[in-house]
């Protein structure tokens, strides 16, 4: 379950990054549809946070420590909202670039989360 959610967040984050990267390339600011996309990715990250907490509650333990794991989960859940607020403040192509960068950063965080949790128990 956790692996599936992690994969979902990674893929949607990369799609969002490509989409907003295209907008930045075309010299466009983020529009309402982009923000819906950001909401979807954020929702996926929140689902992941809940699933992870439930797993921790059941006694499952990440390979590389609970504190680091939870820290990364919270960071992952906050990345896209933070990028969204910054792109609201920056109504230019650079606002789109910020969200694109945020998507890539989130994908990297997911990769690290996967390592921290450990491949042993999906």
């Amino acid at each position: 379950m956790l692996d599936a959610v992690t994969l979902t967040v990674t893929v949607t984050a990369l799609l969002l990054a490509a989409w907003c990267g295209l907008a930045a390339y075309r010299d466009e600011p983020t529009n309402d549809w982009h923000f819906i996309g950001m909401a979807v990715v954020t929702l996926a990250a929140l689902v992941q946070l809940v699933v992870a907490l439930v797993r921790l509650g059941h006694g499952d333990r990440p390979d590389h420590g609970v504190a680091v794991f939870v820290g990364y989960q919270i960071g992952a859940a906050c990345t896209i909202p933070a990028a969204a607020f910054m792109s609201l403040a920056e109504r230019s192509r650079w606002g789109s670039a910020i969200v694109a960068a945020g998507g890539v950063i989130l994908a990297v965080l997911e990769l690290r989360l996967h390592e921290i949790w450990g491949a042993g128990h999906g």
């Binding site: 504190a67 960071g75 990028a83 910054m86 650079w94 960068a101």
Partner: peptide
């Protein structure tokens, strides 16, 4: 403009580097 993109990256790196070092130093 481009400065805001830099601000975003530097903000992320601040959180990443500081939280990483705090965890490492404390554990």
């Amino acid at each position: 403009g481009p400065g805001r993109l830099l601000l975003w990256f530097y903000g992320v790196f601040t959180v990443a580097a500081l939280s990483r070092s705090i965890v490492q130093i404390s554990t």
